[in-house]
């Protein structure tokens, strides 16, 4: 069979863990740190980014043969900005409280380098279905990372998750975690943990290879 079937599952799955945009590629840092002071904000931001990335990937991929090469970046940016405007106004209507808290960071989704990166690296060169799957996978990975970060910071800094108190009244909140420094520190430590897991896994694989070589 000469034509290779695209591996849909692989394209979808890679964004979740192996090529997680936040933990592996360290992309889209600004919203990651700025809005993850509570799990709820992180979740809303994740959903907003999910919508923008998926729709933009769909559109860019369907128009990929029509967009002139020289102005492709500007075209992507305008497509992204259009959908961000849609998200901005929808959130303002549906969840005014959260919209107020996220403030300027919803419009700033436009300059999230992860979104533009996916358009340039993937959606502009691949058919529609696979581009959308790639976008969904990447966006879910982004959402997952945001949620982990938001949950850790909210639990440590506020003793709560999604606004529900987890500990008794004697819990002393670690306020610095919901303030800006907490964002840097939490992400730094999470990256460290991620790196450590990766190294442990590599070591395990190496060890198993050695064992196999011995028994053979």
């Amino acid at each position: 069979m000469p034509t290779k079937q695209p591996d849909y599952y692989k394209e979808f799955n890679k964004g979740l863990w192996k090529e997680n945009p936040v933990f592996v590629h360290v992309l889209g840092m600004c919203p990651v740190l700025a809005v993850t002071n509570t799990a709820m904000n992180a979740l809303v931001m994740g959903v907003a980014t999910f919508f923008v990335l998926t729709v933009a990937s769909f559109l860019v991929s369907s128009l990929r043969n029509l967009i002139p090469h020289q102005v492709r970046i500007s075209t992507y940016v305008i497509i992204i900005a259009t959908f961000v405007t849609v998200v901005d106004f929808s959130l303002q209507a549906l969840l005014p409280a959260v919209h107020k808290e996220l403030g300027a960071f919803i419009p700033l989704i436009v300059v999230n380098c992860m979104i533009l990166g996916r358009q340039e690296a993937f959606a502009s060169r691949n058919p529609v279905i696979i581009s959308v799957l790639d976008a969904i996978g990447t966006a879910l990975g982004f959402m997952l990372a945001l949620f982990i970060l938001g949950a850790v910071r909210e639990i440590l800094g506020d003793g709560a998750l999604l606004g529900i108190k987890l500990f008794g009244p004697q819990f002393e909140p670690w306020v610095i975690m919901v303030l800006p420094p907490g964002g840097f520190l939490t992400l730094g430590l999470l990256l460290l943990l991620f790196q450590w897991f990766k190294e442990q896994k590599e070591r395990l694989v190496e060890h198993l290879d050695k064992l196999e070589a011995k028994t053979l």
């Binding site: 360290v26 420094p181 964002g183 840097f184 730094g188 460290l192």
Partner: peptide, 10 residues
């Protein structure tokens, strides 16, 4: 990156 982020936090 991990160390840079921790430095940035401080």
């Amino acid at each position: 990156t991990a160390m840079n982020l921790i430095i940035a936090g401080i």
